[in-house]
Design a protein around this nucleic acid. Structure first.
Length: 669
DNA sequence: TTTAAACACGAC
DNA sequence: TCGTGTTTAAAT
């Protein structure tokens, strides 16, 4: 009889510890077993975290495991990563292990279905590598062949051929007998990558993992990976949890995208997990982006990542020319419309030449807020406290958080005045105005209101790329990776929208957005034109984006981050307290703050902010308060440890308040 | 006296 | 969390 330590598949903080069981079977760390649990000895699944342990509890109470599931098991590396995740994110063992464990049930014997029978695979012409690509590859190849754990940040302008570098790296890794994970920021993008990879590597070697697979599909793919049949995994962020062994490379394309940070428990950062796993296998990490995140670029500066630059574009297509238009001047000149004189003239010019136009505005709806001119009252959603956006087609004020619709009153609910007016501009208004300006042109709008599902999005995009649409107006959806050949002009209607978001990353976001949207212009070989309208055209995010000068942007932004002590010079730790009782939520948050100050981790606690109400929280019948900690570099683990012990004290007492930790959150809170 | 619902407790 | 055993309240 030997003893093992397991974690029970019981989703509670109270039971999230090791339980010791005895067995005479050959059970290893990573195995999944069935054990009798609690008074009724009901059978529960359990994950083996340690084999061959010396029992620490009274041997008399130790039970024996019921059975071992021979078909599915995790690996020793995965269990180590789970333990590390628990510490790093302040989550339960079970939260971590659920990321790796298969969910769903196996297909009935003989009923496995062919996963990619409909995918033909796009035939590939292997282009001659540019000098830059060849040099990049040589560096990476050396690390692969010598089996060193190294990290690379590829800063490559659009169409500089990053994907080709990724594919040749993977070929190298496979040849060395290792495996690979290729991640993209969105599920929609897995399709085109899968097509290209299947053509290059063959479909039997490829598996796809993302959250839109059915349970059955996901289980089957999981199994193919675990058995070692599929050696290359393509996926969205959860692909990083693929049960691969001996991982040689993990690639994150468009690494700056916010989707790599999980916003659900466990609130992990994909790069974190990738690095942790790669250290175990001595594999390499590759991050690719045209606009690297400030955090990643700083890591490259510090030597944590090797920086590889790809400046040359295929066919040497010139980057589009970007012009900034000062909207204050327009206003002074008496132009109160959303089209500056410059944008209007250039639009006419482009249309006359038979070119297409994209107008970008990162805000849907007609007007952004509805307000009473008499008393200044702004209509808000009673549940979310967010100002309502006016949608003309629906003739309603819509809350963009909860989606509820409200009829707009003809008189002000506070003062009774009839001066209810609409302010601010959304895509719907841009569309209406553009139709007035160009009545004989084909105009379409692409945002969450016009395209509720994928098919609609594809229809609108299809129309545009076939040239049936002259002007396409849209939100972020038009900015993403699509290759339109005939776009002569891109207009950013208002760059101020993303610039004025109250978040320390808003400047970075704006630079990335403008660069990304600009990249839609002039892809057919001719030089494209981009016009960016703003009330603050001298903001450095805009001027540097207009000059296509990432480094200049970075140098200025990093100084601000350092001065303000924001990431990467600190970690922002958000601790959220949710309870049905509002005072309990506030008091627990306050207690946590006091506890952390008493722990004297670093400083005198001036970096821990007082509890605030979470405005973004949509929970019914409950309240959420949060405290924010500006955690000095190097103290993250210590803070998480003490927050976690505070959480354990909470579960010890009978407190109906739940606690969630989020490090460097992306969404506003 | 019977039956249901509320509550409290501990798990190897 | 989740089943079990115990207490308390309502129904016959």
């Amino acid at each position: 009889m030997k003893y093992i330590n397991v974690v029970i598949d019981n989703n509670s903080r109270h039971t999230d510890t090791y339980y010791t069981y005895g067995t005479s079977l050959d059970v290893k760390k990573g195995d999944i077993v069935k054990v009798p649990f609690n008074r009724g000895n009901k059978l529960k699944s359990a994950y083996v975290f340690q084999d061959d342990v010396v029992p620490e509890c009274d041997p008399a109470i130790i039970k024996e495991i019921e059975s071992l599931d021979g078909n599915i098991s995790l690996t020793s590396e995965i269990m180590d990563t789970c333990i590390w995740m628990k510490r790093r994110y302040g989550i339960k063992y079970l939260d971590a292990v659920k990321c790796f464990a298969p969910n769903g049930k196996p297909a009935k014997e003989g009923k496995e279905k062919e996963p990619y029978k409909d995918v033909a695979g796009e035939p590939q012409i292997i282009k001659q590598l540019t000098d830059e690509q060849a040099m990049a590859l040589a560096q990476i190849r050396q690390a692969v062949q010598e089996g060193r754990q190294e990290n690379f940040l590829i800063h490559g302008v659009t169409s500089s051929g990053k994907t080709e570098v990724y594919m040749q790296t993977i070929a190298e890794v496979i040849a060395a007998g290792k495996t690979a994970i290729m991640l993209v920021p969105e599920i929609a993008l897995t399709k085109q990558i899968t097509d290209r990879f299947i053509a290059r590597f063959g479909k039997e070697n490829i598996a796809v993992l993302h959250s839109k697979l059915t349970k059955r599909e996901r289980f089957d793919e999981w199994m193919r990976i675990r058995k070692g049949q599929a050696k290359i995994v393509i996926g969205a962020r959860l692909g990083v949890f693929a049960p691969l062994d001996n991982i040689g490379v993990i690639i994150l394309d468009e690494e700056h995208e916010a989707t790599y940070k999980s916003d659900m428990t466990p609130k992990y950062d994909t790069v974190d997990i990738a690095l942790k796993r790669l250290m175990y296998f001595d594999g390499i990490l590759i991050l690719g982006s045209a606009t690297p995140s400030v955090v990643s670029y700083q890591r490259a500066r510090e030597g944590i990542y090797h920086l590889i630059e790809l400046k040359q574009r295929y066919n040497n297509t010139p980057l589009p020319k970007v012009e900034l238009v000062d909207m204050r001047e327009e206003l002074k000149a008496g132009n109160r419309t959303i089209f500056s004189d410059r944008l209007y003239r250039k639009s006419v010019e482009a249309l006359e030449k038979g070119k297409q136009i994209i107008l970008f505005l990162n805000r849907r709806g007609y007007s952004t807020f509805i307000s009473c001119r008499e008393c200044g009252e702004v209509l808000q959603c009673p549940q979310c406290g967010i100002s309502l956006t006016y949608h003309k087609r629906e003739n309603a004020g819509i809350c963009h958080y909860c989606g509820r619709k409200f009829r707009v009153p003809d008189s002000c609910p506070t003062c009774g005045s009839h001066y209810i007016k609409y302010f601010g501009t959304g895509t719907e208004k841009v569309e209406e105005f553009t139709r007035e300006l160009f009545p004989d042109k084909n105009i379409e709008r692409l945002d969450l209101d016009t395209a509720k599902n994928n098919r609609e999005i594809n229809r609108i995009i299809g129309n545009f790329s076939k040239g049936r649409t002259d002007i396409l107006i849209g939100t972020q959806l038009v900015a993403k990776g699509l290759d339109f050949k005939n776009v002569g002009l891109v207009g950013v209607v208002s760059a101020d929208v993303s610039l004025n978001v109250p978040d320390y990353r808003s400047t970075e976001r704006t630079f990335q957005l403008v660069t990304q949207v600009a990249g839609r212009a002039g892809r057919g070989g001719e030089e494209g034109l981009v016009i960016v309208q703003s009330y603050t055209p001298d903001n450095f995010a805009l001027t540097t984006a207009a000059e296509h000068d990432y480094k200049k942007f970075f140098d200025m932004e990093i100084k601000i981050r350092e001065f303000m002590d924001y990431p990467p010079f600190s970690d922002l730790i958000l601790v959220e307290f949710t309870s049905e009782d509002e005072t309990e939520a506030i008091e627990t948050a306050e207690k946590c703050k006091e506890y952390l100050i008493r722990c004297k981790i670093e400083g005198k606690g001036e970096n821990i902010f007082a509890p605030k109400l979470s405005t973004n929280f949509k929970g019914k019948e409950s309240f959420r308060y949060y405290i924010l900690i500006k955690c000095p570099k190097g103290f993250r683990n210590k803070y998480i440890y003490y927050i976690d012990t505070f959480g354990e004290m909470l579960t010890g007492q009978k407190c109906r308040c739940s606690m969630i930790i989020d490090v460097n959150p992306y969404s506003t809170f």
